[in-house]
């Protein structure tokens, strides 16, 4: 069984309401998790380059200004020191081509953002407790 002890996660998301929901849901599910929100891809990369404690899991929105989710994904995956970090794409799009591209570029999981708060919470709960072996 390959489960990760999640203590620290980061989200790159330019939509304020989505960022709020993410943080509210994570805080509700696991009170001790540190959640860092970056309002665009550039801010995420700046945070990662300066972080003393690397997040175990990074959530990426795809459509963001300055640096989009795919660019962040490539940058993170090209840095060997960040290899063990799980990357989860959180996107409103469910286009098969986009999902395929995300996996090809090194995403560990692709999740389509549900509209409902309850569904989003259930989805995040499963994501945080995922057995990553099953995804290999």
């Amino acid at each position: 069984m390959y489960e990760i002890q999640i203590k620290n996660v980061a989200l790159a998301e330019d939509d304020e309401e989505d960022a709020f929901l993410f943080k509210a849901v994570i805080s509700e599910l696991k009170k001790d998790i540190i959640v860092t929100i970056a309002a665009d891809g550039n801010l995420l990369m700046t945070f990662l380059n300066q972080a003393t404690l690397m997040p175990e899991m990074i959530f990426l929105d795809l459509n963001m200004p300055y640096k989009n989710g795919f660019e962040c994904l490539s940058e993170i995956r090209s840095n060997e020191t960040w290899n063990s970090t799980k990357i989860v794409i959180l996107s409103t799009s469910s286009q098969p081509q986009q999902i395929e591209n995300a996996y090809k570029n090194g995403a560990d999981l692709y999740l389509a953002k549900p509209v409902s708060y309850t569904h989003f919470k259930n989805m995040m709960e499963q994501c945080l407790n995922l057995n990553w072996d099953g995804l290999k």
């Binding site: 330019d14 304020e16 960022a19 709020f20 943080k23 509210a24 929100i37």
Partner: peptide, 20 residues
Amino acid sequence: VHTFALLNTCLEIKYQFTEY
């Protein structure tokens, strides 16, 4: 307790996006 946490998140997120 939950309401305090939600308000805390409101303040944090708005601050983050305001900086942005």
